[in-house]
């Protein structure tokens, strides 16, 4: 077995018995994640499906280093995320994780280029902001403020910002949730492009069942548990996705 193969054998993410409980102590306890075991191989595009409150976002937050699990363990490659301090999690996010959110979360007072520069300013080995914007087809919109762009454009800026650091993983929470089909397709195409071009492991949370056909792997959540994992033999391209 070659060394390379051995590295690839280590999954990008591995979770064992991950549980997250909100509330307690007087207020009603909510079990957002209930002992989730998962292995997500490196380089895949994974779609997380499930109704609201099924635990998708909670999982994404934990493996993205935004939140702590109540119990269980989660690894990114060989790093135990659940053992990390806040400071180490910050370092982990800074070096490895790109986020894309449903509501874009651009800083309103910064231009497209500057929003991307927010990341390139602190990442260890970033691409130039212009380069990242070109990858999502926004090379001509660099000087525009969020308020001057359409929702699809804003989301593509968010993707450019996420990929500009050359992240190990890209975590997207409802990236097309606020978009119409045309702009949504453009955003999906950008994600697909990043996944194939850089081999970035990409997790996408969505309510849109159409998107699942793009994925290497589809994980279905219900009541804080994984109820089904499905691997696609054949995948469709982003522009073939219907809404």
């Amino acid at each position: 077995m070659s060394v390379k193969r051995a590295i690839q054998d280590i999954p990008a993410f591995r979770t064992r018995g991950i549980t997250k409980i909100y509330g307690g102590r007087g207020t009603a306890e909510v079990r957002a994640l209930d002992g989730v075991d998962l292995d997500l191989p490196e380089g895949e595009l994974v779609v997380l499906l499930g109704p609201s409150g099924s635990g998708k976002s909670t999982l994404l937050n934990i493996i993205g280093g935004l939140d702590h699990a109540t119990s269980g363990q989660a690894w990114f490659r060989d790093q135990d995320l659940t053992a990390m301090t806040d400071r180490q999690l910050t370092r982990y996010r800074r070096d490895n994780v790109g986020f894309v959110f449903q509501f874009y979360n651009l800083v309103a007072s910064l231009t497209a280029r500057e929003n991307v520069a927010l990341v390139t300013d602190v990442a260890p080995n970033p691409m130039r902001p212009e380069e990242a914007l070109a990858l999502v087809g926004l090379q001509n919109r660099q000087g525009h403020f969020p308020a001057q762009m359409s929702g699809g454009e804003q989301q593509r800026v968010a993707i450019a910002r996420a990929i500009a650091k050359r992240p190990g993983v890209l975590l997207c929470d409802e990236p097309t949730g606020a978009l119409d089909s045309k702009t949504g397709t453009a955003v999906l195409a950008a994600l697909e492009d990043v996944n194939t071009r850089f081999g970035t492991t990409t997790l996408v949370i969505t309510h849109n069942a159409g998107i699942r056909k793009m994925a290497h792997r589809v994980i279905r959540f219900q009541d804080g548990r994984v109820v089904e994992i499905e691997e696609n033999e054949t995948r469709i391209r982003a522009h073939e996705v219907t809404w």
């Binding site: 806040d86 400071r87 996010r93 927010l118």
Partner: peptide, 16 residues
């Protein structure tokens, strides 16, 4: 609030 969350998600340290 959400911008602060975003900055943290992007890897900015609490001190920054």
């Amino acid at each position: 609030r959400s911008e602060i969350g975003l900055l943290k998600a992007l890897g900015y340290r609490d001190s920054e």
